[in-house]
Amino acid sequence: MPLVKDGKIVDDTFVHLADDAVLASGGDLLIPAVRFLADSGAAVARSGKTGVVWLNNRDIDDLVAHLDKISIVALVFPSFRDGRAYSQARLLRERHGYKGELRATGQVLRDQFVFMLRAGFDAFDVRKESDAKAFAEVAARYSVFYQPTGDGRVTAFRQRLARHAEVAGS
């Protein structure tokens, strides 16, 4: 599965740690939330970088205390239709000020890219090669956004007010 980060297909240095695998001291690891929470000290004391896979039915509040020690939060879309991780993403970015990598995993297709970008994701485990290749084009498909989110895009409301100000000032 190709990984898209900052708009480009990149190599993934992270390895998913299986539930029963031994916690290696080196290497960049994506660790399931249960194992991470059981011994977060051991997880972050390793020489490699640490990411956490956080399922969409877990309260994001339980992760907040660890955010400054981890490099990746990987949220999960078990199906295209299950949108819980969009809420988790916005809370992490907008309420808890998480600045690290926020990775969308699971059923990630091109038709969700715009929603995911707006919710604060910046990395995507894309299921199809063709979707990953089309990322830049798809991400630029929309130029109008009605809702303010933490992604910094200017909303339609603000665009309008700016236009009125321009007209008034000219």
Binding site: F80, G83, Y142, Q147, D151, F157
Partner: peptide, 13 residues
């Protein structure tokens, strides 16, 4: 209507 159109969080309720 504007608020709900293509809402980034609530399009997959």
């Amino acid at each position: 209507r504007q608020y709900s159109t293509m809402h980034p969080e609530f399009s997959f309720l």
